[in-house]
Amino acid sequence: MKKNSMIKNSSFSLISTKKIIQMNNIWTSYDSKIFVLKGINLSIDRGTNYAIVGQSGSGKSTLLKLMNGMMLSSKGTIKIDYVMPDMNDKKFKKMMHTIGYIPQSLGLIKNITVLENILIGALPRLSKIQSFFKRFPEHEIQEAKRILKLVALSGKENRKVYMLSGGEKRRVAIARALMQKPTILLADEIVSELDHVTAHEIMDLIADAQKRMNLTAIMVHHDLQIALEYADRVAVIKEGKKILEIGVEGETIVDFQTGDMSAEEIMEMYSDDSQK
């Protein structure tokens, strides 16, 4: 990993506070009857890798949608660098380009090329005229190509997205998010459907980009193993509640909520939860 690029990009964060995201007692629902999240508290340190795991339907995707302002909570407060995420709010709208969001379905545009998809990440930096005529400045195209290389997709820039493999599509989605020059990366189950080797390739890539760009990554995972492997902290969600917050320190798993616990105990706990 190249340290020099890290220094260049991290100068900003030196003056900001340590906590980048804070959620206090968050309750939310889709149809105002059943609460999907029930009193979530969490705080995420700048520059760390934070993972969220839990069973299907436990509310993981909902949690990410609250962080990028696509959804609003019914109760509680969320602050991202002191701003309440709400995509209809002018102040937050201006900072949305600093949050890269990769939805569970990736949200790529299938019948345009890889390069065109990646360049979409630069749209907030374009003038009205440039974006109307699809005239991307040369330095943006160079930046896109640089990122293309970073995600190991060089040579595929003119492929239509529908022709790519699942792993390649995920790389395009990551590249589009990185093109935003984000400070936060939200990724929803980006490696869940991949085989072991490809999943690790993708996770390594994100870890690398994270160090280069001083990103805070918040990633939803299906698999606790991979979450523990890459994340500084892992929040375990069950039925809309955070039941655990754990991390790996050295060889042991540490429970940040109730004190130390053995790896076996936690693994057992988790596997009980995820039994269908």
């Binding site: 709208k93 949200g107 299938k110 979409i120 907030p124």
Partner: peptide, 15 residues
């Protein structure tokens, strides 16, 4: 999905 994803980048409606 693509609409939501691109919207969350903070693009204008014209974009």
């Amino acid at each position: 999905d693509p609409m939501d994803a691109v919207n969350s980048i903070g693009v204008s409606k014209w974009q």
